[in-house]
């Protein structure tokens, strides 16, 4: 399991290549990356992600452990950033490696659903000179019910 909470940017391609290179007997790798999206009014100037440092790493490791226990996986990677980000920058990524794709897809979806509403990160957007907290979506909280 590889879990990193960091301020600095990461290169998605490099991370995925490295993640694949360290696996044995893996036939499927699924990756997801969340990126900074513009607002409908196209006025996003920046995003700031606040986190709870003492809890974030442990919360992500706990979510990764649940996925490893539940599906037939070889490995899991989660990277989540905090601090200042700009448009189209990668906020986070998850990757799952498994012998077969079904487990890799299901576990990646599970990781994302849990991470959205159980990992202590909060997004704030700078729009037209004003900072506003991003509201949580009820669909995100409801998405946990399917697991």
């Amino acid at each position: 399991m590889h879990v990193r909470v960091q301020e600095e940017p990461f290169d998605l391609g490099t991370e995925v290549d490295q993640f694949i290179r360290i696996q044995d007997n893996v036939g499927a790798v699924v990756t997801f990356s969340g990126v900074v999206r513009d607002t409908p009014a196209q006025d996003l100037d920046a995003m700031e992600i606040e986190h709870y440092p003492a809890m974030a790493q442990a919360a992500l490791e706990d979510i990764a452990t649940q996925a490893l226990n539940r599906w037939s996986l070889a490995d899991v990677i989660i990277i989540h950033r905090f601090g200042r980000l700009t448009l189209r920058e990668a906020i986070m990524m998850v990757g799952t490696a498994a012998p077969h794709r079904q487990d890799a897809f299901a576990a990646a979806a599970f990781l994302m659903d849990y991470l959205k509403s159980r990992a202590p990160f909060w997004k704030k957007e700078l729009r037209g000179g004003r900072w506003e907290w991003v509201s949580s979506r009820t669909e995100d909280a409801e998405a946990l019910a399917r697991w």
Binding site: G34, I49, Y52, A54, M55, H80, I91, M92, M112, L115, K116, S117, R118, A119, P120, F121, W122, K123, W133, V134, S135, S136, D140, A141
Partner: peptide
């Protein structure tokens, strides 16, 4: 030892 209060999380 430690209690934290915060809004619903918006990670990912």
């Amino acid at each position: 030892q430690e209690v934290a209060f915060f809004p619903p999380m918006t990670g990912g």
